[in-house]
């Protein structure tokens, strides 16, 4: 199927498929229409008047991520975990990381400083995701950049200097996941122990389900209940996951 036959088939396929889709879309509302369910989340996410329906997070997207539709995000995290397993399963078991010396003191010190800066911003983006754009995944991506930058700019051999290797990355990733899973299970265990109604991943108490995590983590500015700790877990998971993926893929390249 080459030459003009292929292109004719392509044009026909695209034309018919897109006209079917356009036919379906013609009855849709015009650009700029926000659906009532979206306005419900906007109205209720940080509404002190009616705390039965709030997520205690001023950022509505973060509230959706780990409260209203938290169970989706839990398994979205697990899908990402499958992605890491994919790379680990196919490319693990090659060379081990070895320390390469030879960097000057200045290079090492600068690398450490940049590293600390990036990690700090990752933490900030994760923790303040209830008030500003951001979240566990975004923070984790930035955290991974701290390690990936070192691999790209210096070398893989520099990673042991930063106290990280594959095994430690795997363990840290699993600790992050365990934090997420633990926070998910706590309401279920509470329900089994006390006999009252509580649902998996429940964040704030409601009239029909009294279980709730404390709304403020010590400071009055850090609201959101379970959202901040669970985002930290996701940050570690995602950051370490990206680091593992990148490490294994670069190792492969070096060998062949």
């Amino acid at each position: 199927m080459s030459g003009w036959r292929g292109s004719l088939l392509g044009v026909l396929f695209v034309a018919s498929m897109s006209s079917i889709l356009v036919y379906a879309f013609l009855g849709y509302p015009e650009l700029g229409f926000v659906r009532p369910l979206g306005e419900f989340y906007l109205f209720n996410t940080y509404n002190f008047e009616n705390q039965d329906w709030w997520s205690a997070s001023p950022n509505a997207v973060t509230g959706l991520l780990w409260d209203y539709r938290g169970y989706d995000t839990l398994y979205e995290t697990m899908v990402f975990y499958v992605g890491i397993v994919a790379v680990a399963m196919f490319f693990e078991g090659h060379a081990k990381l070895t320390k390469t010396g030879g960097m000057t003191v200045i290079v090492r010190a600068t690398a450490r400083m940049v590293f600390v800066f990036i990690l700090t911003s990752a933490f900030a983006i994760t923790i303040f995701s209830i008030k500003t754009p951001g979240g566990g995944f975004q923070g984790g991506s930035i955290m991974a950049i701290a390690y990936i930058a070192i691999i790209v700019a210096l070398s893989k051999g520099f990673l042991p200097e930063m106290n990280i290797d594959l095994e430690k990355a795997h363990i840290a990733k699993i600790i992050g996941l365990a934090l997420i899973a633990g926070l998910t299970i706590v309401p279920v265990v509470y329900s089994l122990a006390s006999g009252s109604v509580a649902y998996a991943l429940q964040n704030q108490p409601k009239a029909w389900a009294p279980f709730g995590y404390p709304t403020y983590l010590g400071l009055t500015s850090l609201s959101g209940g379970l959202i901040i700790p669970i985002q930290l877990g996701e940050m570690v998971h995602v950051g370490m996951g990206f680091t593992i993926m990148f490490l294994l893929l670069t190792m492969k390249e070096r060998e062949d």
Binding site: F40, W53, Y68, R69, G70, Y71, Y199, A200, F211
Partner: peptide, 10 residues
Amino acid sequence: MGGWPPPVGI
């Protein structure tokens, strides 16, 4: 899930 009635939650 999470104690939310549909369509708010799952």
